[in-house]
Design a protein around this nucleic acid. Sequence first.
DNA 1: CACTTGTCAATACATATGTATATACAGATG
DNA 2: CATCTGTATATACATATGTATTGACAAGTG
Lengths: 216, 216
Amino acid sequence: MRLIRKKNKDVEQDKPGRKPAVSEQELMEAAVRLVDSTRSVSSLSLREIAREAGIAPNSFYRHFRDVDELAVALIDRAGRGLRGTIREARQRLKSDRGGVRSSVEVFMEALDDDQKYLKILLREISIGSDAFRNAVDRELNYFEEELNDELLRVVEATGQQIHQPRVVAKAITRLVFTLGASAANMNMQQRSDLTEETVTMVRMIIVGANIIAKRK
Amino acid sequence: MRLIRKKNKDVEQDKPGRKPAVSEQELMEAAVRLVDSTRSVSSLSLREIAREAGIAPNSFYRHFRDVDELAVALIDRAGRGLRGTIREARQRLKSDRGGVRSSVEVFMEALDDDQKYLKILLREISIGSDAFRNAVDRELNYFEEELNDELLRVVEATGQQIHQPRVVAKAITRLVFTLGASAANMNMQQRSDLTEETVTMVRMIIVGANIIAKRK
DNA sequence: CACTTGTCAATACATATGTATATACAGATG
DNA sequence: CATCTGTATATACATATGTATTGACAAGTG
């Protein structure tokens, strides 16, 4: 009857009431397990997820209002993982040699860790509810911001000019994400080829932005 | 009982049997009508589409084996429209001034014609059945091929060098498609800003590929 | 004309889905 | 201890879905 949903932080576990049989985390993992190359998160039914998690259908409501809300939580989770990935990519970008390749590689590798979260994020960019798309957009913009900062830092440090760093950041972000998404279901050889191509693309953009800036 | 599905080409309409109440074309249009920013083609149910088209659920089988097959037909249709768009973009690319901008604009404009077909193609890249994804992939590759040819032609005609034209074509294709997809639900101002950005990106790639080729 | 063939609609069924309702249990609080 | 509260389950219902079966109808063919 009561429709209020509990946001049970693990901190405040000394409240009255029965302990949850599953955590939100476990529900999310159950959903991830059901997602494959054919099925998207938003296509999962509440009952399916509950079944996979081993709880009664109705118990789902104790954790999320509906499947979409779970999906958004998944994206947030993916975003957190992604930020770690970005941080590592930036580290490598700063180190002397092969910065671009190395940071693209970090991204591609991240497709396999993080319990598929990143993979899911990439696959669901274009679909799902509005809430879902917004969540994904937030993460994309975050990536873009970071990259933009990095570019500005390079500009300042090396005196190298870059034409419209914001646009450069956007181009690189979209490219890497798009190609990353298609890499999700590739074998190692294909993926390494794709990584190589991606590196070339990113270099072209950077070099191009550099030249265009100089011409002005 | 008989499960054979008729591929009724409009040519051979002098066969026995009752005339179809709806054509495959009309079924596809019904499906398109049901697709909006939230719902993907693959999420439509057979009954929904039949309802929208005004036929009995079972009559659907006279035209397509299942919804996926309809979806693939949609993509093929979108591909045909896209090829026209590409042709026009190439025309403009060849003309002297503002070739890049003009051809990006063609693409963006195409989002509104074609009865949403292109929009749908863009949105469903990452989801749907394997057959569906393959159909989309075919169209992407086609675009890439065309662009590659065009680049090679430019190389030959102007003596301008281009580093790895194949990769350049891929980068541009993916970028334009990705950004085009996000443009689908934008207002005019946003879209024109995005067009501008896309043009800049494409130029950066071309300039970059040019410079890199010269360096070697 | 009778006959064949492709298409349609109507009915029906097994299954799935989201969720309302009611009830049972566990643990903290008084 | 009794009470309260958050959580979980079971049952149930209205609705939706894919499709099997059946029979009607239309348009050609002999």
